[in-house]
């Protein structure tokens, strides 16, 4: 794989679910997407436009009905095990295992990679501290606030030094100020790592804040628009851009 090759490549991807009664539901249809190395891309769209399905397909948790998906030149579903330690994922809810402490949760990916216990703890502690969780290493998830739990979730992803970061509505359930602070931290760490990052969100504000590129998904999952986010824009220019994005989403709503 060359450095110029796309890190993420989806070609004409289709995903159709068939229910027990035989009803068919198309979640993703004709989805094409390319993301280059080091890009930070935000994927926006309304609820039910196949964002979560796209996310699961990218992680290789589901097999597309047709089309091809390549991450780093490999198929995330067919070559499932090849992706050990390569994907850093931050989920909508923190998904911390309730029977593990913050430290034990943060190091779970390293345990899977069979690191020595000392290495596991050293790396996990380093990230927990970087994410300002000193003193909470031995706390169970229920003893932490929502923002702290999501920080542990971030530590779990960053511990692996993965090739690609995925975030699925990672800040959606937090209160506004906590979400904003965490977004900043996240962006800082991702930029520092120079890795590729895909952020899925329904929040346009969040998308503009983090992504340097904006991909708008329409129903059923396909690319409606793909644009650069304005840099150094004035408040008014930003608002105008936001309006344009909303218009595109709403136009798709009317047709759909």
């Amino acid at each position: 794989m060359n450095a110029a090759d796309p890190v993420v490549q989806m070609q004409d991807v289709q995903m159709v679910f068939t229910s027990v009664d035989g009803d068919r539901f198309t979640a993703v249809e004709g989805l094409d997407l390319e993301v280059g190395s080091g890009d930070v891309v935000a994927i926006v769209g309304k609820t039910g436009c196949g964002k979560s399905t796209t996310f699961n397909l990218l992680l290789g948790l589901e097999r597309p009905t047709s089309g091809s998906i390549q991450l780093l030149g490999h198929d995330p579903h067919k070559e499932f095990d090849w992706f050990r330690s390569k994907l850093g994922v931050i989920f909508q809810t923190d998904r911390l295992l309730p029977w593990r402490t913050a430290l034990e949760n943060a190091r779970v990916g390293l345990e899977i990679l069979d690191y020595s216990e000392k290495e596991q703890n050293d790396i996990a502690l380093q990230w927990l501290h970087k994410l300002e969780l000193q003193g909470f290493e031995d706390a169970y998830p229920h003893e932490l606030s929502g923002g702290m739990r999501q920080r542990v979730g971030m530590a779990r992803a960053f511990c692996l030094t993965p090739e690609i970061f995925f975030a699925d509505e990672a800040f959606g359930h937090l209160d506004q100020s906590t979400a904003r602070r965490l977004r900043e931290v996240f962006l800082e760490l991702v930029t520092e790592s120079r890795k590729t990052c895909l952020l899925i969100t329904h929040n346009i504000h969040e998308a503009l804040e983090i992504g340097s590129r904006l991909v708008i998904l329409g129903k059923p999952g396909h690319v409606l628009a793909d644009m650069e986010t304005p840099t150094n824009a004035t408040r008014a220019e930003m608002a105008e851009f936001e309006d344009r994005v909303l218009d595109i989403i709403e136009a798709n709503e009317v047709v759909g």
Binding site: V89, F91, I112
Partner: peptide, 18 residues
């Protein structure tokens, strides 16, 4: 939880024990 762990690519044994 299952999806979270599967994204980390555990072996069957690891999935069972963790």
């Amino acid at each position: 939880y299952l999806d979270m762990l599967r994204a980390l690519r555990p072996t069957r044994k690891q999935l069972f024990s963790k």
